[in-house]
Design a protein around this nucleic acid. Structure first.
Length: 470
RNA sequence: GUGGCUAUGGUAUAAUGGUUAUUACUCUGGCUUGUGGAGCCGGCAAUACGGGUUCAAUCCCCGUUAGCCACCCCA
C-alpha cells in the first residue's frame, strides 16, 4: 500500500505543474491516474453484512458463555445445523405468504438446478433434524440449543442486518405449559445474566382452528371499519389481517382497541394452557405484559407466542425485540414427522451486543477502560535475544503463563511503550547481556524496580507475580 | 421493496467554484543506538464511484453505490 501511494504522489505532482500552461490536458491525465490507482479495487462488504471486530470480542464471548452456561443448567444440548438448506424447508415451515420467505430469503439455484436457501432462522432446521434423525424415538422432550448466523435480505436499518446471529433453544415433544415457561425463563435469564433489564410480552394465538374462526371474525370487523384504516391495513385485511393489530399508525389505534381479541376465541384447552403458562411465570417472578396485539410473523406458531424487549427508561419503547419465540405444535407434522408439539425461542445477538456495548459505554464514561488480558509483557533486545524469545514465550505458556509481546519491534523503547499501553504490571526484559548470563530482568512497571533472575527461575517468578496480582 | 437525510486520511473533523485540502487521534520513525506513562520534531494517509454544468468542481446538478433513519416486515 505504501508503495502504491508513493507512486501516486510522484505521479500526481507532474500534471499539477503542467496545469498552468495547459488547461485541458491535466484533467484527462488526472482522471487516468486516478483510475490507475483504483485499478485494484478494494473489496468491500456486501450490503447489510458486518465484520465482527476484536474490539467487540468481549461482548460476543460473554454472550456465548452465558448462553452455554444457562443451556447446560437447563439441560439443553448443543447442536448445529447447516447454514444452507433446501429452500422448500423454509417455504413449508415459515410459510409461503410470509415476508421472510417471499421477500427476504436468500434463495439460489444449486449447480444441479435445485433450490437452496441460506437459512433465515433455525427452528425449521432443528425440526428437520429431529425428524431425520428419528429423535422422536428418544426420551422426550428433546432439548437443544444452537448459535449461529441467519440470513435475511432486508434493507439494513437500526439493529437490522442481512447476516444476523441468533442463539436459540428448542424443546420438542412435550405439550405442557411448564415447557413454555421454562423456555421463557431461559431466554429471560440469559438476558438478565448479561445485565439487560427486559420485559416479556406474551400472548396466545391458539390452535390453527381457533385462529381460523377468529380471523373470520376479525376480517369481518376490519371490513366494517375499513374507511378508518390506513392504506397498509386495508391491504393487510386480506393478506395478513392479524398484522393490522400491531399497526403503528395513529389513525388505526381506535379501530384496533375495539377489535375482537384472539383470547376470547381460544378453545377452552388453549385458554387453560395459556393461563397455566402465566401462572408458572408468576411463580418464578418473571415480569410479563399481556399483549393482545402480539402476533408473530411465522406461520408455524400455535398457542403461546412471546417477545422480549429491553426495558427503556423513558416512555419510548424499543422497536426491536431482543428475543422472539413461541409454541409450534403443528410444525413437526407439517414437515413430515409424527404429530409432535414443540416450543422455542431465538435471541438476536447483534441487538444484545449493541445493548451491552451501550451499557458499558455508559458505565465507563470517561474512566479509563480496564484492559483485559495478561498482565506481563516480554521484551527482547538484540538479535540473540530475539532468537530465544519464542522459546521463552512457549516455555512460559506450557507452564501455564501467558505473556504479551511484540517481537516485531526492535527497540526496547517501543516495546516498553506497548507494554505500557497494555497496562501490564511487569515486563520481562531479555537483552544481550542477559542472554550471555542466562538471566532475565523483571521490571515492576509501577515502581520501576528491576530484578535480575536466573532464566531457569522465570516461571517460578512469573508464578509469584500472577499470584500476587490476585 | 418504498421514502427522507448523508458521503473529506483508519477514526473524528475544518474549509473552499481556482495554485500545496485544515486539525486532532491512531499508526510509524527520531530526539547520543539497554527501558514505558510527559514533551518536541518528522513520516504515511482522504474529497465514495460515474457523468453533467464551467475556462476551472471536493464544493453546483444528475445517476450509481454505500451508510444512517423511518415504513413494510422482523431478531
Amino acid at each position: 500500500m505504501k508503495k502504491s501511494s508513493g507512486e501516486k504522489k510522484s505521479a500526481k505532482q507532474k500534471p499539477v505543474k503542467k496545469t498552468k500552461s495547459e488547461k485541458i490536458e491535466p484533467k484527462t491525465k488526472k482522471v487516468s491516474e486516478t483510475r490507475a490507482n483504483k485499478l485494484i479495487k478494494t473489496p468491500t462488504l456486501l450490503r447489510g453484512f458486518k465484520d465482527i471486530m476484536p474490539k467487540d470480542q468481549d461482548y460476543w464471548k460473554q454472550s456465548y458463555h452465558t448462553a452455554e452456561g444457562i443451556c447446560e443448567a437447563y439441560g439443553y444440548n448443543w447442536m448445529e445445523t447447516p447454514i444452507l438448506e433446501e429452500a422448500s424447508l423454509f417455504v413449508r415451515s415459515v410459510g409461503k405468504g410470509t415476508d421472510i420467505v417471499d421477500k427476504e430469503m436468500y434463495i439460489f439455484e444449486d449447480r444441479d438446478g435445485s433450490k437452496v436457501a441460506l437459512r433465515p432462522e433455525a427452528t425449521a432446521s432443528v425440526v428437520r433434524a429431529y425428524i431425520g434423525h428419528g429423535l422422536h424415538t428418544t426420551t422426550q422432550p428433546v432439548k437443544v440449543w444452537y448459535w449461529g448466523p441467519m440470513f435475511r435480505h432486508d434493507r439494513p436499518q437500526a439493529g437490522r442486518f442481512r447476516e444476523l446471529h441468533q442463539f436459540g433453544c428448542e424443546n420438542i415433544g412435550v405439550h405442557e405449559p411448564v415447557i413454555d415457561a421454562e423456555l421463557i425463563s431461559v431466554a429471560y435469564n440469559f438476558l438478565n445474566d448479561l445485565g439487560v433489564a427486559c420485559t416479556v410480552h406474551i400472548n396466545s394465538i391458539g390452535t390453527a382452528e381457533d385462529r381460523e374462526r377468529y380471523v373470520i371474525e376479525l376480517v369481518g370487523y376490519l371490513r366494517s371499519k375499513r374507511s378508518y384504516l390506513c392504506e397498509d391495513c386495508r391491504r393487510r385485511i386480506n393478506k395478513n389481517p392479524m398484522r393490522c393489530l400491531d399497526c403503528k399508525q395513529e389513525s388505526c389505534q381506535p379501530v384496533i382497541e375495539e377489535a375482537p381479541q384472539i383470547i376470547d376465541w381460544l378453545s377452552d384447552a388453549s385458554k387453560t394452557f395459556f393461563m397455566t403458562v402465566l401462572e408458572y411465570l408468576d411463580e418464578i417472578n418473571i415480569p410479563y405484559v399481556l399483549d393482545s396485539t402480539l402476533v408473530r410473523g411465522l406461520d408455524y406458531y400455535t398457542d403461546t407466542v412471546f417477545e422480549i424487549y429491553e426495558e427503556q427508561k423513558g416512555e419510548e419503547k424499543s422497536q426491536n425485540a431482543l428475543c422472539g419465540g413461541g409454541r409450534y405444535n403443528g410444525l413437526v407434522e407439517q414437515l413430515g414427522g409424527p404429530p409432535t408439539p414443540g416450543c422455542g425461542f431465538a435471541v438476536g445477538l447483534e441487538r444484545v451486543v449493541s445493548v451491552l456495548r451501550r451499557q458499558t459505554e455508559k458505565d465507563v464514561e470517561g474512566e479509563e477502560k480496564i484492559l483485559s488480558g495478561p498482565k506481563i509483557f516480554f521484551a527482547h533486545l538484540g538479535d540473540q535475544a530475539r532468537r530465544q524469545s519464542l522459546r521463552i514465550i512457549e516455555d512460559l505458556r506450557r507452564s501455564g503463563y501467558v505473556v504479551r509481546h511484540n517481537l516485531g519491534k526492535s527497540s526496547l523503547k517501543s516495546q516498553m511503550e506497548i507494554a505500557n499501553k497494555y497496562g501490564v504490571t511487569h515486563t520481562l526484559i531479555l537483552g544481550q547481556k542477559e542472554v550471555q548470563d542466562g538471566t532475565i530482568i523483571i521490571r515492576d512497571m509501577e515502581s520501576g524496580i528491576q530484578e535480575i533472575v536466573d532464566q531457569k527461575k522465570i516461571s517460578h517468578e512469573v508464578k509469584k507475580i500472577v499470584e500476587k496480582g490476585r
